[in-house]
Write a protein that binds this DNA or RNA. Structure first.
Length: 360
DNA sequence: CCGTCCCGCCAGCAT
DNA sequence: ATGCTGGCGGGACGG
């Protein structure tokens, strides 16, 4: 049935498929793009749908990003579907607070030691920031007395903060996700819970890594992967690196890629009734592959949204369009050093893909 | 084989 | 009921 597709691009298709890498859709990458998207000027509000569309990912992923970023004050929830951009400048403040809290709670863990039962958890008190001046709220119903917060006991937001606290309060700057999970689970080392916790920690660690807040390394002896705290200076770097450029022309990123418009539909992408109306500029690619650095925006979703792993995929040959959109997406103009290096490995894939394109 | 971790189901709460 | 959130863990991917 869905096999023979007399098309020369058939090979390109498979190549694209084999070129595809999970890394292209990693949370870390998503966050990088997210940050880049909203760090411009005093970016104001962040609409979840807007972000999802712009970044080419499903809504669900935006929640992950936003929850983690909120844990260190980069964004703040404004309301339904809406977050506000606070910026990196807010991070040091948040970190200080977190450190203070952490010290107070003495939630730090020790490196591989029988832990004393630390009844961490959150108390039903506190947790009311409400700071954030400006806020033109109608000054009414703005005090969430925070009751029944038992739900967020497991929130990514809290986990993220606790993870940060560990770095801020621990004497040892190398922390493994296992130790973190163990510490955050108090003591019950139930393998199942541990596993789940670690899974979440991976997400958080990836996000912070992509922000250069922490760095992945490994413990000299054990060789076990661990994370090292880098601090907010690194973040500042990321944030200030584009202090001048601002936007030469308000031409944001034409990332209109296969936007999964439908809410939570699943599988296949049926009709992508969108013709990618990319900016203008010819930029017919075919030579940018010689410039590894400055890889800018990374496309989020893989081409055939669901064809990659689902069964009922109908090979659409609308790839051409996507290719074009991707080409227009690639705009070598911003050169963030750290991000560039961060995306170094990714750039390879990028280039290879272009090479393939060219061949075709 | 195992460390990572993407994906999206679906429970809970809000509207 | 519809829509927004976001735990949670199956199982695919990469080394």
């Amino acid at each position: 049935m869905s096999s023979s597709y007399a098309m020369v691009s058939q090979d390109a298709e498979s190549l694209a498929l084999q070129t595809y890498s999970r890394k292209e859709k990693s949370l870390g990458l998503l966050v990088s793009n997210f940050l880049r998207l909203y760090n411009r000027d005093d970016a104001d509000l962040i609409g979840l749908d807007h972000a999802a569309g712009k970044l080419g990912v499903e809504r669900r992923r935006i929640y992950d990003v936003v929850n983690i970023l909120e844990s260190i004050g980069i964004v703040a929830r404004k309301g339904k579907n809406m977050y506000s951009w606070k910026g990196f400048g807010e991070v040091p403040r948040s970190l200080d607070k977190l450190k203070e809290e952490g010290m107070r709670e003495k939630l730090c863990i020790s490196s591989s030691n029988n832990s004393d039962k630390v009844l961490d958890d959150v108390e039903r008190e506190e947790s009311s920031f409400s700071l954030t001046p400006d806020d033109q709220e109608t000054s009414s119903s703005s005090k969430i007395v925070s009751f029944a917060d038992q739900k967020k006991e497991k929130s990514l937001w809290l986990l993220s903060q606790n993870f940060v606290k560990m770095f801020l309060c621990s004497d040892d700057d190398l922390i493994t996700l296992d130790s973190a999970a163990k510490a955050l689970l108090s003591d019950s080392q139930d393998p199942v819970h541990m596993r789940t916790k670690v899974r979440r920690l991976y997400d958080i660690a990836n996000v912070f890594s992509s922000m250069n807040l922490i760095e992945k390394t490994q413990i000299p002896e054990t060789k076990k992967p661990a994370y090292r705290w880098l601090g907010s200076e690194s973040i500042a770097e990321t944030g200030t690196s584009l202090f001048n450029s601002d936007e030469p022309k308000k031409r944001v990123f034409g990332t209109e890629i296969t936007n999964l418009r439908a809410k939570r539909n699943k599988t296949d992408c049926s009709s992508n009734g969108k013709q990618i109306g990319y900016k203008k500029h010819d930029d017919e690619n075919t030579e940018q592959e010689s410039k590894p650095a400055a890889s800018k925006y990374v496309f989020g979703p893989s081409f055939p949204t669901g064809a990659a792993s689902k069964k009922n995929e109908n090979v659409r040959k609308g790839r051409l369009q996507e290719i074009e959109s991707l080409a227009s997406t690639y705009k070598p103009q911003y050169c963030n050093k750290e991000i560039t290096s961060l995306l170094g490995h990714f750039t390879e894939t990028w280039k290879r893909w272009y090479a393939e394109l060219d061949r075709k």
